[in-house]
Each structure stands twice: as structure tokens, then as C-alpha cells.
Design a protein around this nucleic acid. Sequence first.
DNA 1: CTAGAATGCGGACCGCCGGTCCGCTTCAAT
DNA 2: ATTGAAGCGGACCGGCGGTCCGCATTCTAG
Lengths: 191, 191
Amino acid sequence: MPPRKPRSDAARNREAALTAAETLFAREEDAARVTMDAVAAAAGVGKGTLFRAFTDRDGLILALVDRRSDALRARVEGDEPPLGRAAPPRERVVALLDALVTFKLDNRRLVLALEQGGAASPFRSPAYGWWHGALTDAWRELGDPDDAPFLAHLMLAAVRADLIEHLTTAEGRPPAEIRDRLTRYARSLMP
Amino acid sequence: MPPRKPRSDAARNREAALTAAETLFAREEDAARVTMDAVAAAAGVGKGTLFRAFTDRDGLILALVDRRSDALRARVEGDEPPLGRAAPPRERVVALLDALVTFKLDNRRLVLALEQGGAASPFRSPAYGWWHGALTDAWRELGDPDDAPFLAHLMLAAVRADLIEHLTTAEGRPPAEIRDRLTRYARSLMP
DNA sequence: CTAGAATGCGGACCGCCGGTCCGCTTCAAT
DNA sequence: ATTGAAGCGGACCGGCGGTCCGCATTCTAG
């Protein structure tokens, strides 16, 4: 009983919804104001269809973010330096953090919508666990292995979407500065 | 035109609401499930009264947190070491971070409710600005003054309520361990 | 003490939103 | 062409934050 392939209209509608949602989230400053009704309308699709395809609001947002981060995830899971497992750990930690913050800078609105999404805390999400794992691995080769998971949490806390948003928008810091300071921050934590 | 003093019944109701809300937030795991109707009912007060006294949901939660943090704020604004301005900066940074995390550990549910509160990002709140200022001052005496505000943001990110909640509840780390690791973290960032 | 005005009270009510339901349509395997 | 399953869509539901306004309570001036 492998899941049978989706019907053609279902696939088409799913795509339409994703595209519409992408535009709406990009346009609207406050993610909470992008309603499911609005997405359905913009996609030219019924509301029921939307929920059938993505289960709930969080599911939709997650699908959007997933699509954007596929390429990045592949690079981290591969071997190639500087992000892959073959990279020397000092460089890898810095590269991971930089890739993460760059991704969030490029997808501010979307990630923001995800992180302040509904009930489930971001920490239980597969994405968080996955990043946490990658960072922990890298840190473990650098210092006290007991400390690695904790440090990984701290790195992820440093690039929380709403913090990044605040630094760029409210404080007007240019992305380059943020990336630079974070890099030096990571280095200063290394033994 | 100084604001005239509040009527006696108003004061009484305000107090009743705060007490009721405190209990409800303490009891309920998920802050979002504490409704304004529930608070009003538990306080034996009309809904309109609640909103008159606190403006909106965020206002109520903020009032709760404020009341709890008064004592702490006084210690930070005073001169006495280790939290006051007279303390040597190395110790002050550590003390501030430790006081903050201790406060959040002691008031998990409440602070959690506050930080994931409505629209306004936590960063614009007076409380965040105030802590950020105190930490920035301390850091400025330690290293590159240009870097101090950024470091202050990082410290605050490290003690975000939902992260603390995750570390204690999901990962089961004892408070003492968290405080200890954070202290060493702060020290390792100092020049 | 009284009387009038100011302030506050409370719960019915509103608008909005996420999510469900179900009769009807479309697809695709035969 | 047939047919049953998969999908569609929009009316509908429940619950929430927030408002409104006729009535009650408190304060103050005389």
C-alpha cells in the first residue's frame, strides 16, 4: 500500500496554491494577515482544496519553506566543503551559521511566518532538529562533546528569524554586517 | 491634568483579574488556551472590565510580568553589586545573564505567554529595550564598544523563553546545568 | 446627608479566521 | 463509454479578541 500518485488536477492546484501563497507572504508585512481564504482566492481554488493539500496553515507554510531550502539541505548533507561533512570543523561551523543566516535574510517573511506559526514550538519541528544535529556534529569535533548540543542551540538562537528581522528592519543593519559579526561571534566561541 | 486616582472598585477588580490570570496561566500548559473570557469568569468580572483595565490581551500579560519583575529591575537599576552599576563589568555581565535566566526559569509559563504574544515583536517592547540597554552598558566596558549592542542581542537570544522551556521540559536539563553553561558561555565571549 | 455627575460595570454582540462537511464534478483505469 | 474513487469548493461552524451601551456604583460639592 504505497501512496498512489496524486491526480493531475490535485498536483496542479497544489502548485497554484504554493505560488499564490509565496506572493502573498512576500507582499504582506505581517504574516498573520495572510489568511487561508486569501490564499485560496488568489490561487483560484476552494478553501477545502487548500486544507486537503496541506492539512493546516502551518503545513502550507512549512511546504513553502521546504521548497526553498532543498538546495541548501543537499549541500549540507553532501561531503563537499565548506558545508559538507568533509570540511574541517572550524570552517564548517562558520559556514553552516553563515548559510543559515543568509537563508533567513533571503527569506525573511516566510521564515518569520513559520517560526511564529501556530501552537507547536519551533524546537520540535524536523527542520530545527536537523539543523541542530548538523551543528552539533560540527561542534563535537571542536571541543567538549558534552557542550556541543548546547552550543548548537545557542547558534540557532542567534539567527532566530525575528531577531534577524529586527536587526535589518528596525536597526537598519546591512546584511553584510550581520553576517560578519556572526562569523566573528562563532569564531570567538571556538577553543 | 494629572490622571486622577482610580475608583476603589476599579482597583479591586484589577487586582482580582491579575490574581485570576496568574492562576490560569500557571495551570495551563499552552498559553494560547487561556482566553480572556476565562480570565473574566475566574475573576468574577465582566469582560468589558477586563479590557478597560488592560486594553488588550498583551496588556494583561505584560502587567503580570511587570509585577513579578519589579524587584529584579530595582536591583539592576541600583548600584549594589553584582547586578548594580557599581559592579565590575565582567561580573556584571554574568550576573545579569544569570538573573535573567533565573527569572525566566521561575516564571516560564508567564514569560512564554508574553514572548509569543500578539502582533508586536518582543524587540519593540520596553522590557526588551531596557534589558538590552543594561547589557549593552556592561559590554561596552569590556571590549569593542561597536560590538556591545550586538552582543547584548545575542545574550538575550540565548535566554529566549521558548528555548529555556525546551531545554527544561523537552530535554529535561536541570536549571542548575542551564545556568552553569550560560555562565561559561558568557565568560567565553569576553576578551 | 443629598443629589448630580463622572466613572466604571458586564454581558450581549460583532467581525474574523481556521477548519470541517458534503453534494457535485473530474479524473483515469478498464 | 462506464464507473467508482479521488478531488473540488464554498456554505457553514465554533471560538476568540475586542466593542458597545444601558445600568449600577462611587465620588464630590454643597
